[in-house]
């Protein structure tokens, strides 16, 4: 499916410092509608921080972020209105352990979108069905496998009908045999035309599904290109060293 021309997410000169340490050193990135952008890079290179700046879980130090035409960093922007349109999926799932799967999905539907109980319940069930968990609506996170929990987390994000979804290492905390179920859901999402930014080291998935791969190192985008180029013929020495390292593992 060809990505549209309109950028959904447009980042310019994004900088972020923690104290005196600069973690993002001027990131420029456009993500077009229906595009799947893959982000790889060594630990500490700033991948999570980049995603977290997009919905202001971290407050950027400098730069600009346009999301769906909205100036995310403007003090006049209602950040909660932006956040509900950017889905986010975390490495550690972050499901609410005191609520059922359906309860997890319903919370924002009820409290942010102010939907009635019956409507929220119907949407939640549809979202859970979409990730293959129709029969787990009444289960608590503690009763679900890691793969199932992550799919509930994806359903929680999808239920709000986001314009784009950010994934921060969605499969890194999973046992190898559970990774496939989550990647399958992401593949289906991609086929449905969802705009996605995915931080992950699942190279097989990237080769099959990514439009573009970014390699980040030390707070910069060192190199970007189609998966075949980044994985097969990286131009930068740093990229090459990193790819060799993850292939070996």
């Amino acid at each position: 499916m060809a990505p549209g021309a309109r950028p959904v997410l447009s980042i310019r000169g994004l900088r972020k410092s923690f104290g005196s340490v600069e973690v993002l050193k001027g990131i420029d990135l456009d993500v077009r509608a229906r595009e799947l952008v893959f982000v790889i890079g060594p630990s500490g290179s700033g991948k999570s921080t980049l995603l977290r700046c997009c919905n202001r879980l971290e407050e950027p130090t400098d730069g600009s972020i346009l999301f769906d035409g909205i100036d995310v960093l403007s003090p006049r922007t209602d950040i909660n209105a932006v956040r509900r349109r950017i889905g986010m999926v975390f490495q550690s799932f972050n499901l609410y352990p005191h609520m059922t799967a359906a309860g997890n999905v319903m919370l924002a539907l009820r409290r942010v979108l102010k939907k009635g109980r019956a409507e929220a319940d119907a949407i939640a069930r549809a979202a859970l069905a979409r990730v293959g968990l129709a029969d787990k609506a009444g289960s608590y996170p503690g009763e679900l496998s890691g793969g199932q929990q992550q799919r509930v987390a994806i359903a929680r994000a999808l239920a709000l009908e986001p314009v784009a979804v950010l994934f921060d290492e969605p499969t890194s905390a999973l046992d190898p045999e559970l990774v496939g179920s989550v990647l399958q859901v992401m593949r289906e999402l991609r086929e449905a035309g969802m705009t996605m930014v995915v931080v992950s080291h699942e190279m097989g998935f990237a080769r099959a599904a990514a439009d573009r791969v970014l390699f980040m190192d030390q707070g910069e985008i060192v190199e970007e290109g189609p998966p075949a180029q980044i994985f097969g013929a990286p131009r930068h020495a740093r990229t090459r060293a990193f790819i060799e390292q993850i292939v070996r593992h």
């Binding site: 879980l57 972050n94 919370l107």
Partner: peptide, 21 residues
């Protein structure tokens, strides 16, 4: 865990709502 507040805020809940629920 800090991720609980972050997950809630990432879906658009206000800080007060995330605290309460």
């Amino acid at each position: 865990a800090r991720g609980q507040m972050e997950a809630a805020r990432s879906t658009g809940l206000t800080k007060a709502q995330a605290m309460a629920w």
